[in-house]
C-alpha cells in the first residue's frame, strides 16, 4: 500500500494505518530531533509529541505538500519549542558567552557532573569533532546541515521544511559547510584519514 493510501485511511480513522505511518517515520523523526536537541531523552519526548500531534492534525493534511516535509515541519516546531522551554528553565553552573558562526550570541551551559549531550557512542573521532563543530553553528545553519547531510533530504524538501526560498537554501548550506570546514581545520587529518 502506498503512503498516500495509508494517509487516506488514517484520515478516515484507521488505527492500523496510523500504526504503519508511525513505523515508517519514527526512526527518521527520532534521529532528526536527536541531532537538533543533542539529548536522547529530549529527542524521545519530542518524538512522542510529534506523533500525537500528527494524530490530532492529520485530518487537516490536504496533500498539497509532501507528507514527509509536513511531518518534518511539525518536528522542527516541537524541537524549537522544547529548546525555548529548556533555555528558560535551565539552571547553569557555568555559562560561557559565545558567538556562533552566524554572529549570534549564545550561552554554552556547562553543568557539573552531567553527561555530555551525545550519548550515542561515536564511531570515530571525526564524527565527534563534527558534532562538536555542529553545536557551534547558528540554529539555521545547523538545521540545514542536519537536513541535508545527516537526513539526506533534497534542497527542495529543505526549502519546504524551513519555509525558505531554494536560493536561500543553497547559500545557507554553502556557508554552513564553509563554517564547518573552518571549525574543523585543526582536525583536518582526522577527516582525511577516515
Amino acid at each position: 500500500m502506498s503512503e498516500s493510501e495509508y494517509i487516506a485511511l488514517c484520515q478516515k480513522g484507521d488505527m492500523d494505518a496510523f500504526n504503519q505511518l508511525v513505523l515508517m517515520y519514527e526512526n527518521k523523526i527520532l534521529n532528526y530531533c536527536y541531532r537538533i536537541l543533542g539529548d536522547r531523552t529530549d529527542a524521545e519526548d519530542a518524538t512522542q509529541e510529534v506523533f500525537v500531534k500528527l494524530y490530532r492534525f492529520i485530518g487537516s493534511f490536504t496533500g498539497q505538500s509532501a507528507f514527509s516535509t509536513w511531518l518534518y515541519k511539525i518536528a522542527s516546531n516541537v524541537c524549537l519549542d522544547l529548546l525555548r522551554k529548556n533555555k528558560r528553565h535551565k539552571t547553569e553552573t557555568v555559562s560561557l558567552h559565545q558567538q556562533n558562526t552566524e554572529g549570534e550570541e549564545f550561552m554554552m551551559y556547562v553543568e557539573d557532573g552531567s553527561p555530555t549531550p551525545y550519548e550515542v557512542a561515536q564511531k570515530n573521532e571525526a564524527q565527534r569533532a563534527l558534532l562538536d563543530a555542529l553545536e557551534k553553528l547558528g540554529e539555521d545553519q545547523k538545521k540545514v546541515i542536519i537536513l541535508r547531510d545527516i537526513e539526506g533530504l533534497s534542497y527542495e524538501e529543505i526549502a519546504d521544511i524551513t519555509g525558505t526560498a531554494p536560493g536561500t537554501v543553497k547559500s545557507r548550506i554553502n556557508r554552513a559547510r564553509k563554517a564547518l570546514k573552518k571549525l574543523l581545520e585543526k582536525d583536518r587529518e582526522l577527516f582525511l584519514l577516515s
Binding site: 571525526a126 577527516f191 577516515s194
Partner: peptide, 13 residues
C-alpha cells in the same frame, strides 16, 4: 570527507 562523515553518522533506532 566532512559531508561523508555526516552522512554516515550512527543512527538511533
Amino acid at each position: 570527507s566532512i559531508v561523508s562523515t555526516a552522512q554516515s553518522m550512527p543512527k538511533l533506532t
